[in-house]
């Protein structure tokens, strides 16, 4: 870990010397959080843990037109950048990626099937360190019987306090209009009704976007295993449509239309 961190700092110093600011995590006096490095003297404070959604911070920089920029990104975050680029959130030419393989312990924590790095067709991507991780299984144990499984999810959704934390923390949730704030689907001021539209809409929208960074699950105060749902949908999209989120910059997303872009006949739109 120490040698990996040293290698990342060395690579980061190179980016700074080329005049590129670098987005990563920093050890502040109060703890770790996202930070835009511009001074190589501060790189001793560069950290890669705990896992904060770097892609989320990158979108703030993109909106402020603070480009070009270099970013230290884990493999799941690189895949997020790939999906963002396909949806016109970032231009690949504007973002230079420094990436590294997560280790096996981290892969276990994240239930990560793809902890290793790949180039994915990103124009400027630097791989640091060695590929050391053993992939972990994404699946969690769910009831086999459909009726039982339905009861399981109903109980999970009933715990939701509608904090919107899953949506807020997600680097892939960048839509200007969020269907989860549309009273047509999600009633304001009320907790979730029996029909779990909130979670199913989000799951649907994640099906060709989610790269399993697990930030939403970590942020969920109700401990709902959200990504078990997204993992299942991603698998369906993979087997039915041959699409894996973040796998390649060239491949077009199969579900790129939102309901807003293709309005349903509800009488409201």
């Amino acid at each position: 870990m120490d040698s990996l961190l040293a290698a990342i700092r060395a690579a980061a110093a190179e980016e700074l010397s080329r005049g590129l600011p670098l987005l990563s995590l920093r050890q502040y006096p109060w703890g770790v959080g996202p930070y835009l490095f511009r001074d190589s003297a501060e790189l001793g404070e560069l950290r890669i843990e705990p896992l904060y959604p770097v892609g989320k911070a990158l979108l703030s920089l993109v909106r402020a037109r603070a480009l070009p920029v270099a970013v230290v990104a884990r493999p799941c975050e690189v895949r997020q950048l790939v999906e963002m680029a396909k949806r016109q959130q970032v231009q690949p030419a504007d973002v230079r990626i420094l990436t590294f393989s997560c280790d096996s312990a981290q892969a276990q924590v994240c239930r990560c099937e793809e902890p290793g790095t790949t180039s994915l067709g990103w124009p400027e991507l630097v791989v640091i360190g060695e590929e050391s991780a053993q992939p972990a299984a994404a699946a969690i144990a769910l009831p086999e019987d459909p009726a039982e499984r339905r009861r399981f999810w109903a109980a999970q959704f009933a715990k939701c306090i509608k904090c919107y934390g899953c949506r807020n923390v997600c680097p892939m949730c960048f839509c200007e209009h969020c269907e989860l704030e549309d009273p047509l689907w999600v009633e304001r001021g009320k907790l979730l009704p029996g029909l779990p539209m909130f979670h199913l809409i989000r799951a649907m929208h994640m099906s060709a976007r989610c790269t399993a960074c697990r930030q939403c699950e970590a942020a969920c105060p109700a401990h709902i295993p959200l990504t078990a749902l997204y993992d299942a949908l991603r698998q369906e999209v993979g087997s039915l449509l041959g699409y894996r989120p973040g796998a390649s910059l060239a491949q077009r997303p199969p579900l790129s239309l939102s309901l807003r872009e293709a309005p349903m006949q509800t009488g409201r739109h």
Binding site: G33, P34, P50, K162, C163
Partner: peptide, 20 residues
Amino acid sequence: GTLPCKEDPVSDGKLCAKGW
């Protein structure tokens, strides 16, 4: 914007609607 603090033992890296 805001982010939950992952090193905070009180919130354990989570926030409610108000905190967000």
